[in-house]
């Protein structure tokens, strides 16, 4: 984990690899089930018009997370 840059800081089009998560176990478990595994590559697609949530591409799927949650998912 370098510095602790997180998913909430990515800009549109940026790709990053998932690192650690600082979320309750059920939430972290759900995210991992959905593909946010350590090392998985995630692309930030866009922010919603009001700035939050943020759309990410993981695997072939498009998933939107809120800023507060994205800020707890660190990148490698």
């Amino acid at each position: 984990m370098t510095d602790s840059r997180h998913l909430g800081q990515l800009t549109a089009g940026e790709v990053a690899a998932v690192g650690g998560m600082d979320l309750p176990e059920t939430a972290a478990g759900r995210l991992r089930e959905m593909g946010f595994l350590t090392g998985a590559s995630v692309r930030m697609v866009r922010r919603a018009p009001l700035g939050c949530p943020i759309e990410f591409e993981v695997g072939g799927a498009r998933l939107a997370l809120r800023q507060a949650d994205a800020a707890q998912i660190f990148v490698q």
Binding site: P24, T26, M34, R62, L63, A64
Partner: peptide, 11 residues
């Protein structure tokens, strides 16, 4: 209660 995560899938 514990805050829950929001994941919205965009088809």
């Amino acid at each position: 209660s514990e805050k829950t995560l929001m994941v919205l899938e965009l088809p």
